[in-house]
Amino acid sequence: MSPHLVDIRLTVNGEPVNERVEARKTLVDFLRDDLGLTGSHIGCEHGVCGACTVRVDGVVVRGCLMLAAQCDGARVETIEGVSDTGEIADLQEAFEKRNALQCGYCTPGMLLTAQELLARGGVPDRSAIREHLAGNYCRCTGYHAIVDAVESVAETRSKG
């Protein structure tokens, strides 16, 4: 086998996946092109915009700054999987209710990044929310509605 090709075994949204990938293929390209999971978006391709955010082994990462070849043995979760399990249903509802998205391009990354903060528990203050989301660009909303949505979910969850 050419050293430019790598065999990987991983799980994606709970499903086992075995594929042969080009070493140079980024994780987000692998998810989109090889697996058809197009919920993870591609923006800047150098780690600035956050549109490609996915979870690897439980933590959010830039899908454009990891190679698919590095994901051998990993547990990868995308917006599709996290939506299907209902883990962020309340957050998605809050985004919709508060107009925290317009074009939606940044939304999968925003949701996954926000969920990482919310999963720590408690009610983070607005500056902590802003800081945690600082790596995710949104060019539509001006961010206020996104912070509102995340804050409201934190409050609801902490009461629950």
Binding site: R62, L65, L117, H132, G135
Partner: peptide, 12 residues
């Protein structure tokens, strides 16, 4: 440390 990159960058 909090000034270095963003949450997703700091995870990796």
């Amino acid at each position: 440390m909090p000034h270095i990159g963003h949450a997703a960058i700091r995870n990796r």
